[in-house]
Structures are given as C-alpha cells and as structure tokens.
Nucleic acid binder design. Structure first.
Lengths: 113, 113
DNA sequence: TAAATACATGCAAATATTATTATATTTTAA
DNA sequence: TTAAAATATAATAATATTTGCATGTATTTA
C-alpha cells in the first residue's frame, strides 16, 4: 500500500484550486497551456508552474505538438478523487452515544468556542 | 455542488501525514488525545493543534468524558477518501495517441528533464 | 530570417504551515 | 485543597508554498 507520507503528499499536490481546476479540465480531454490560461484566469507563468508541479509528480504528462504542449491525465487516482469530491453527503456521521471504553461522557461536550 | 475553493481547502486540511493518521485511527472508533500521542509519536501540543484544525473545519468532533476528550469522525466524506487512498491502481491512464485537436503531435514529447 | 506565438524557468517577496516551547485550563483523586 | 493528569492555547521559530515578474527558449509563420 502507498505509504502514509506519500498519500499526504499526493493530496497536498492536488489541494489547490487552480490545480483541481486543471485536473477537472483534463478529465474532459487533452488541453494545452493557453486553454488553462483562459479557464483559470491566472498568468501564463503561474499556469506553467502548476502544470510543472503536477507533471514532476507524475499526475499529468504532455506531448508536444508543434509549439503546443498537450497535457493529459496520467494518474488513475485523479478521476476517482474528483468524482468523490463532487459526491453529495446529506448528513454528518452519527456521534457515538458515549465513550466505548468508559461508557460515560456526554455529547456535545462543552466548548469554549 | 461544493465549490472549487472549498474542495481545495478540504483536501488541504486532510493533506498531512499526522492528520491522515488521526483520521484513519478514528475510522476504528472513538479515540482520546493521548491515544494519538502514542500512535503518532508527535508532541501533545502538536496533536492538539492538528485535532483543533480538524475540528474547527467540521471534520471531527468530540465529547467530554471526565478529563478525556473523546474524538470521533463527523464528516462522511472522510472514510470514502481514506478508502480511495488505499486503492491500488495497476496502470497509468492511457496517453492519447495524438492531439485530438490538431490530430498531430507525438508522445512522449521531448523533455528537458 | 525576423517577428510572433507558446511555454518554461529563476528568483525574490509575500504568505502560510508546522513544530516547539512555555503556560494555562479543567477535572479527578488523594 | 492540593497535586497530577489530560488537554488546550499562545507565541515563536523554522520551513514551505505561492505568486509575480523578468527573462529565456523553441517553433512556426510571414
């Protein structure tokens, strides 16, 4: 199984609005850099930096078509994650009635804030 | 649907090895702070900080049992995400044969590094 | 072959995150 | 009522991330 540290790293790389948008765009198919410039409304160098980060971490890749770089999704985990992020959850998980060990305690606890 | 910014935030909050471990421990049931101190091998204040971050963002909650604080999972997205992170993917996604727009280009492209 | 297009890189500034240390609060037990 | 246990908070220091900007390179077109 993929080790804890790597799982954290993977999520961290994805956990940025620009990069999530990039990945979502890529689930629709191949895009080149200027496509993201339009859809993200950030500067070209900034787009390039996000793409480089995603690529050097093996999440996306590209091929060259003349002066275009055509980026595509490589990491199969991504579509599943993006789907999960779109899933609607109606309710919070149920709070345990009491502490399973001491069989005591009350919820909700008193909070200072 | 949960907006882009929020999705990024959510992932960012989870994307830390200590916090992923905390959440995994919590899928097994209620735990108090000192349990994490043992299982994570980080300082008590640091555990507390991670727990506070998770709680103030609605991902976990606690109830009070004497001088223990019993933490539990609240955000239903978490178990699904943790499962997904454990899933094995055998192969990378297939690279497109050519640019769907220009019908040209070669993969892999030339890389500088 | 000069200009334009598409993209990448390096670096510095701004900001955010993390761990650490010290201290405070709450509760139970003696 | 005092001490200790369990946890939280605050301040700080160390790092990491993010962005902006200037510049650099490759490719195509005129």
């Amino acid at each position: 199984m993929i080790p804890l540290e790597k799982r954290a790293e993977l999520l961290k790389i994805i956990a940025h609005p620009a990069r999530i948008k990039i990945l979502e765009d890529l689930t629709q198919g191949v895009k080149c850099v200027s496509d993201f410039e339009d859809s993200l409304d950030i500067s070209q160098p900034n787009v390039s930096q996000h793409l480089t980060l995603l690529r050097t971490n093996g999440i996306i890749d590209f091929f060259v078509d003349g002066r275009l770089k055509c980026y595509f999704l490589k990491e199969p985990f991504i579509p599943d994650l993006l789907d999960l992020l779109k899933k609607e959850y109606d309710d919070d998980m149920p709070a345990p009635a009491c502490c399973p060990v001491t069989k005591k305690g009350t919820y909700p606890g008193e909070r200072r804030r």
